[in-house]
Amino acid sequence: MNIFRLFGDLSHLAAIAILLLKIWKTRSCAGVSGKTQLLFAVCFITRYIDLFLHFVSLYNTEKVMKLIYISASVFTCYLIFFKFKATYDGNHDSMRAEFLIVPAAGLACLINTKFDAIEILWTFSIYLEAVAILPQLFLISKTGEAETITSHYLFAQGSYRALYILNWIYRYHYESHVDTIAIVAGVVQTILYCDFFYLYITKVVKGQKIVLPA
C-alpha cells in the first residue's frame, strides 16, 4: 500500500459518500445519472465476485472495503430507481448503456491476461469502469448544468483513478509491478474527466456553478 493508493481509495469512498448524502439529504436524485450508478454497481460486483464464490473471513480491510463498495453502490441504485424514483431525470439520462457494456464485454474476451471466467469478469469490470461515467457527463451536458454537490462527487470520483495512476507509477518504480490493462483503462478513464476537471478548478473552486456550454 502506498500513499497514492490510500488517498485514491479514500477519494473513491468520499465520492460514494457524497453522492449518498446528496440523494438522502435532498431526497432527490436530480442531476444524477442512474445508468452510471448501475454501471458502477456492475463493475463492483463483477470485480469482487470472489467475495461471493468462497466466503472469506472479513478480517482484512480489503474485504470490508469491497463489501462497502458493493453495498453502497447497490443502495445508491435503490435510492435512484425505487425510493426517489419520482425525482429521477430519465429523459436526460438517455445515453445507451448497452453501447458501453457490449464493447467492454467484447474487448474483455479479446484482450485479457488469462482466458478464464474470473479474469474475464475482472477485465470487463476494468474496461466498463473506464467508461461508466459517460452517462453522467452526458446528462450534465444535456441539462447544461451540475449542482455544486454533484460537481464535488465527480471531482472525488475522477481523482480516485487519477491517484491510482500515481500509485501505478510508484509501484512500477519501487516494486516493478505492472498491470497494463488496469493502467491503460485508468488513463482513458481519467482523460474523460479532463474537461470536467478544468471546469471544476476554474469555476466550482471559486464558488461558481458549472454551466454548459462553458
Binding site: 481509495d9 480489503e62 463498495y69 488469462k114 475482472w122 491510482y164 500509485n167 509491478h177 498491470d179 488496469a182
Partner: peptide, 10 residues
C-alpha cells in the same frame, strides 16, 4: 506465481 499475478488492488 499466480499469487502475484492476482490483482491486488480494489
Amino acid at each position: 506465481s499466480p499469487a502475484d499475478e492476482k490483482h491486488d488492488e480494489l
